[in-house]
């Protein structure tokens, strides 16, 4: 299933050897730590460059993030999630964990991926 999101998100990135790698993002007051980048591509639209990242955050969901140099805005464009699960964002325990608890709080709160699937 695919959810069209199109919302601005806060993204933490690492700049390394001329490349940008997102490591975490915050969406709807939850933090998602990027566990894997499955694909990237870039595209020029006029004078603006946009960078696209497909990332996973611990579970099987894939998040499509993009950065455009038009305003330097990061967006979460889409989420792909497995059939038979609740839509991301409406789940009580998603791959993300509430902002402010810190990464170490993830396991204990049931907000991590472990609490999500039977």
């Amino acid at each position: 299933m695919i959810a069209e999101i199109g919302e601005p998100v806060d993204v933490s990135v690492v700049f390394r050897r001329g490349k940008i790698r997102p490591v975490a993002f915050e969406w709807r007051n939850r933090n998602y730590r990027v566990s894997r980048i499955t694909g990237t591509h870039r595209e020029m639209r006029g004078q603006f460059l946009s960078l696209h990242y497909l990332v996973m955050a611990g579970g099987s969901d894939v998040y499509e993030l993009s950065l455009t140099t038009d305003g330097m805005v990061w967006k979460l464009n889409k989420i792909h999630w497995a059939e038979g699960e609740q839509e991301p964002g409406s789940r009580p325990g998603t791959a993300g964990f509430p902002v402010g608890r810190g990464h170490e709080g993830r396991r204990g709160t049931g907000g991590g991926t472990e609490g999500r699937r039977p």
């Binding site: 499955t38 694909g39 894939v62 792909h80």
Partner: peptide, 10 residues
Amino acid sequence: SVEQRDIPMY
């Protein structure tokens, strides 16, 4: 193939 590479669940 590009989509299946980028989105492992497919």
